Computed example of a mutant assay.
Amino acid sequence: MSLISRVIATPAWKVFAQYYYPFLTRHGADDVAFLNLGYEESPPMAVPLSASDETDRYCIQLYHRVATQTDLTGKKVLEVSCGHGGGASYLVRSMRPASYTGLDLNPAGIAICRKTHQLPGLEFVCGDAENLPFDDGSFDAVVNVEASHCYPSLPRFFAEAARVLRPGGHLLYTDVRRFDHYAEWESALTDAPMRMAGKEIISENVVRGLMKSLPRSQHMFTRRTPPLLHGPVRAAVAASNAKICRGLQTGETSYRMYCLVKD
């Protein structure tokens, strides 16, 4: 969770993210399936989950909310920046696409995905969000969750997403930005070669998810640290989460969800 607080606070976050994710994978997060923030509604979503998924409920609910902007049943789906593959695994099992391809620039993460998430119709490939290694019109939907803040060129990603989508295909997209990047963000979305079919500011829902998932975050960061350090680490994680929540509540940052359609 501390990644996002750094992402929205430093001008060098793009370079930072390029090296941070492989480091995170290799040094303690190889068994963490989700790297995104959480999501919860009021009243609670109560998405039916298996016992093995319950620990990741609030991360899963963000994927669920983004993906259900359209029907993925029987569709060919690409997830750009799939992280450690938890979202891909959940969507394959719950949304029943015909096929699902997870792509990520982090080779260590892709290795984890291939080892951990072995399901029919699910594959993982290493690749660049701004130079997708697929033919034109290859997919019915592209999923992108909390990743585009790491891309050097957001317009380039939108162009590539549109290229690999079939006519009528959907880009199901969500991410966070600081207030001083709102105009640039909206401009890239307006100029994208797709029609905007849905937009929602979900900052309050992400705050709820973060608050609910704090114990998970604390466990994630303490499970491999000496017991003597558990207290300080738990306190640091709580402080980091609180800072993210304050930013979302005050409008310093905004978490938004979009659905774009290729006509």
Rank of each mutant, 00 (worst) to 15 (best):
P226N: 03
F157G: 03
Q218W: 05
Y151T: 08
L171E: 07
P22A: 14
S187Y: 07
T10E: 11
H117V: 04
S148L: 09
F124H: 11
V92P: 01
P97L: 05
E204R: 15
L189K: 09
M95E: 15
V32P: 00
I201N: 14
A29S: 14
S5R: 13
E160K: 06
H149P: 02
D135R: 14
C126H: 00
G109Q: 10
A141P: 09
F158W: 10
P155K: 07
V77F: 01
A141W: 08
S89H: 12
S42C: 13
H219E: 15
M45V: 07
V125Y: 09
F139T: 12
D56R: 04
H64Y: 11
L165S: 09
S99P: 02
L24A: 15
R6M: 07
L189D: 08
E252F: 15
L103C: 03
N131I: 02
E252Y: 14
G169S: 02
T222G: 05
A98D: 03
F158H: 06
A192W: 08
L189I: 14
G121N: 01
S203W: 14
L132S: 13
P232G: 08
M220I: 13
L78D: 00
R177Y: 14
S254E: 15
G247N: 10
T25Q: 05
S148R: 08
A236N: 08
T116R: 15
L72M: 04
R166E: 11
P133L: 13
L171S: 05
R156H: 03
C150W: 03
L171T: 02
C59W: 00
G247D: 07
Y258V: 12
L165R: 13
T25L: 00
G121F: 01
Q118G: 03
A238T: 04
I60C: 07
K75E: 02
A129N: 02
T68R: 15
L132W: 08
A192R: 09
N36Y: 10
L62R: 03
G85L: 06
T116Q: 06
A12L: 09
L62T: 02
Q61N: 10
G102P: 04
T174K: 07
